[in-house]
Design a protein around this nucleic acid. Structure first.
Lengths: 352, 352
DNA sequence: TTGAAAGCGCTAACAC
DNA sequence: GTGTTAGCGCTTTCAA
């Protein structure tokens, strides 16, 4: 084990307190003393023991980011921003992968990481209001990408339903009347899927178009392979859709691949739209029309919210008066509809 | 702050030691006592304070994964496996993004995370043997994806140069004689770039093909946008290449997009190959020929190596005898050449 | 401006 | 089987 404050103090011929003062950048240290201490610090290559510091301070400077899977581009991009924003405020981020499994999500809520973390940013897939209310762990929590209205927690999310409706309206405005949806889920607590489906149905209804269940296959997951498989099914039907709205970009890219492999031209034979605006879709051929949530804003807001709840920054700031923080904050993040080649025509590369 | 062992002990009418025994699952506790303790534990919703435990045990159960950027699919996929493998061994993973910046990489090596972590898995971009040797932080370290031969550290990597040579040979075997390379870098310590370039040149030389600098533009980064821009430059030249070997899949996908936008058919007019085998390339049109490193194996091996160095698992295992661990371990990971549509023809979707 | 010492919550050596 | 207690390294109150 490395040198401790005591070792440094002994070497510098001062007390532990003085060394601590120097290490923590307190004022009121004679230049002479400071110099001595710094010399000893350097000679012993002193590194503070964070466990001890944390124990003493009652905080760790670490927050957890819990999400379904790091290798889904949307989450990878989001994580990037979360880690950046956290780093700016002195926080270190630790990652928990839930794979969207209800069990693991529940564990996350109950605090597997125990006192290791000062706060939690959580992007749930299946967890609902009840689980949230049943939570006993008191670690500050901010929910991401889910809008559980009137839930007991802070959260930041876009209006999924509205965005889905607008995207569907876009497809309708292009003259399509048979519009498929890829991404519906059986799981009654798959919030995102339900919201996006609701938006899709809303748009259809508003346009006087029928809701055809055959055009809305159910998917277990949101990966490229699922999109590809479901698109195959849709194309094989008697009346294939003229357009397909996929509930995320990964599904859309899979669907796109299937369509192109089948010799269809996109968007001429079938239009494809996605959701998330991952970088992939800006370089696919054709480029992908999508809903673009402001990921950086979402990440930043989540970190700020958490920061406010915890009070002070990761490097041992003091706890702010809890009273100053409003009980529950709901932030609605912005999004944009980005129309690109996969629905608009093959003329240009708009939006990217 | 939550309940401590002392509180639980008081409530259960036993000593702290007994509670500790129960919490840590030691044997030799009367069923009766155990029951009492468990009751108190539940009533107080006891959660061990990890800072205290860590301080005491001299370890934290946390390892850091330092990599350039989480939103590059290769790293996202790798991280997924690292986190999985770590979780299986009781470790929690914290992420450090370096953006490939020399400064930040140096900080990582010197241990910004101080005593917060028990070990470090590091995927460097610019750091070289000197920096590695100059390292004073004694946290166990495993290097990833870089083969700094005879370096002072454990590492696991594929043979970049050989893989690059084989890919170039593949392109040559297709009859191409003007083969571009996208991914060379000026930075003398950009190890990966140099190794892959060396492999490329080796193959050319072996085939008696000239090395033409104009076909090897330099890139600052390895993103899709860079690949797209560089491809534009190559295509604009007097004698555009018949095939392009990109040093990663992101560059390749960018290059692909440029080629298709320009109205070229791939691979007929120009073949494109990548490196990394990210999922993207399995669903692009055309699908992407690439070098596929065994990411899961790499991640798993890195975690195992680290585990061995640290000794015992994340949840308080004992430190193993240091002597049992060999000084420096170099593991060469497997890779496969995956030929897909972007070089092979448009007949089928091989390899995916 | 610096020092002495208590104590954060936990584990483990040692006693009983 | 269970209890007592020292001490991990640090911060911080209180004194000097």
């Amino acid at each position: 084990m490395g040198a401790s404050l005591k070792d440094v103090a002994a070497r510098a011929g001062v007390s532990v307190k003085t060394v601590s003062n120097v290490v923590n950048g307190y004022t009121y240290v004679t230049p002479h003393t400071r110099e001595k201490v710094e010399k000893a610090l350097a000679e012993l290559d002193y590194r503070p023991n964070l466990s001890a510091r944390n124990l003493r301070r009652g905080r760790t400077g670490v927050i957890a980011l819990a999400l379904p899977e790091l290798d889904a581009p949307y989450f990878a991009e989001l994580s990037r921003f979360v880690i950046e924003a956290a780093a700016e405020r002195g926080w270190t981020v630790l990652i928990d992968q839930t794979d969207g499994l209800a069990d693991r999500e529940r564990q996350v809520l109950q605090g597997i990481r125990e006192q290791l973390i000062d706060g939690l940013i959580f992007s749930p897939v299946t967890v609902g209001r009840e689980e949230l209310s049943a939570r006993t762990d008191s670690t500050p929590l901010v929910l991401l990408g889910e809008r559980i209205l009137d839930g007991p927690t802070h959260h930041v999310a876009i209006d999924n339903q509205r965005a889905a409706r607008e995207m569907t309206e876009h497809l309708i405005s292009l003259g399509h009347t048979r519009i498929g949806a890829i991404g519906a889920q059986d799981n009654p607590s798959a919030n995102t899927a339900h919201l996006r489906l609701a938006g899709y149905r809303q748009a259809l209804a508003a346009a006087g178009l029928p809701y055809d269940e055959r055009l809305v296959p159910v998917t277990p997951a949101y990966h490229r392979a699922d999109g590809a498989a479901l698109m195959r099914r849709l194309l094989a039907s008697d009346e294939p859709p003229q357009a397909v709205f996929c509930f995320n970009d990964l599904l859309a890219l899979g669907a796109l691949r299937t369509a192109l492999s089948a010799g269809l031209r996109v968007p001429r034979d079938v239009a494809v739209a996605g959701f998330d605006d991952i970088e992939d879709g800006r370089y696919s051929t054709p480029t992908l029309t999508t809903v673009s949530p402001d990921k950086e804003r979402i990440a930043r807001t989540a970190v700020e919210l958490l920061d406010a709840r915890i009070g002070g920054n990761g490097r041992g700031g003091r706890r702010a008066a809890e009273a100053a923080v409003p009980e529950v904050t709901e932030v609605e993040a912005e999004y944009r509809l980005v129309v690109r080649e996969s629905t608009a025509g093959t003329a240009g590369t708009s939006g990217a």
